[in-house]
Simulated scan of single mutants.
Amino acid sequence: MKINVITCADHVSPESVKGNTAVVVDTLRATSVIITAISHGAKSVVPMTSVEEALETKKKLENVVLGGERKARLIDGFDLSNSPKEYTASAVAEKNVVLTTTNGTKAIARSSSAARIFIGALRNARAVAEAAVAEERDAVIVNAGTGGEFSMDDFITAGAIIAHMLELKPAELTDVAKTALIIYETHRDLRSYIQEAHHYGVLEELGLSEDLDFCLQESVEDIVPEYKNGIIKQHF
């Protein structure tokens, strides 16, 4: 088994994930939102790369909640932002959540040639590692990044997932995967590392410290969402 990390969505090509198990990570905050929505009973999450696509998709589905952000802010006319705290059972249970975000939904779309696509974050790091190892094929952790650039928060999350994978099965790591693992192993106080990330600072300035606290909890969820045929549901 070989494990690789792709450091941002813009670096994903069909060839880089084809035939692999992909784990898409956007810790702050899209994949944390998806995990929370599925955990709270959402019928599905439908990721879209543009606001226009999201609005068109709403017309085709029943019981839709529109969620997402642009520049970390609520999109005009949408029901929910990209704050996982908003995706409560009362808001999303039995609903189809149509979601569009700046980075996370783009990373999911660009990973579509993978054999399986799981949704990962710190909150489900151990569970998603178990699901990836069970597939018994090479794995690639796709970091969404921020605005087409490397993001520290996603990178250390990749390291956490790799650490849990190695607890279950030996693997060959690429240099970038080894680096992510080293970063995780030497920064077990995750906040001390992640608070240096640019996107952390952006969210803090917007008064979203509760979101940061929520997203930085490690392995507190057993939920493993899977993207398949254009929608995300719980993996079984």
Rank of each mutant, 00 (worst) to 15 (best):
E167P: 00
E205W: 06
I183H: 12
S44D: 03
N63A: 06
K106T: 13
Y200T: 00
A180E: 00
P225I: 09
K95E: 01
E196F: 05
N4D: 15
H235F: 14
R123V: 07
E210T: 07
V142I: 14
V224H: 10
Q195C: 14
A134W: 03
E205Y: 09
D175Q: 07
A91D: 00
G207L: 12
I161M: 12
V25S: 05
E226Y: 04
I156Y: 05
D10I: 03
E135G: 09
D211P: 04
G67D: 07
L206N: 04
V64K: 11
K228P: 02
A127W: 01
G77N: 10
R137S: 06
D189R: 10
G201M: 03
K178G: 01
V12S: 11
A114V: 12
F150C: 03
G201D: 05
E149Q: 14
N229D: 15
I141Y: 06
T157L: 03
G230M: 14
A125C: 06
K43H: 10
E149R: 15
M48W: 06
P14C: 09
A139G: 06
A121K: 02
S113N: 08
G159E: 04
K228V: 14
T57C: 08
Y87N: 07
D76Q: 15
I182P: 01
D138M: 08
G104F: 09
L55T: 03
K58P: 03
D79N: 11
L181H: 04
I117K: 00
V92R: 10
I119T: 06
T49Y: 07
V128S: 08
I6D: 09
K228L: 15
V51H: 11
K60G: 00
A160F: 01
A171M: 14
T7V: 13
L190H: 08
R191Q: 13
I108A: 08
T27M: 03
E149M: 08
A115S: 11
A127Y: 12
F236A: 13
T49G: 02
R188F: 04
E62T: 14
D222T: 15
M165G: 00
E15A: 15
D138L: 06
A125Y: 00
S13Y: 12
L181I: 05
Q195G: 04
E167Q: 11
E136N: 09
N124H: 07
R123K: 08
G201K: 06
A37S: 07
E136I: 01
G230I: 14
R73E: 13
I194Q: 11
E196Q: 15
R29T: 10
A107Y: 05
H11E: 13
V45G: 07
E136F: 02
L166K: 10
R123A: 02
R70Y: 01
V25W: 01
T31E: 00
S209R: 14
E204D: 03
A132R: 11
E130V: 12
S192H: 11
S151P: 01
D213K: 13
T105F: 08
T36W: 05
N82A: 07
G68V: 05
L61R: 05
M1E: 07
M152Q: 14
H164Y: 15
I38F: 07
E172R: 06
I35S: 02
A115I: 00
H198D: 13
M1S: 10
E53R: 06
T179K: 14
K85N: 12
F214V: 07
E218P: 00
M152E: 13
T102Q: 01
K169L: 02
C8F: 13
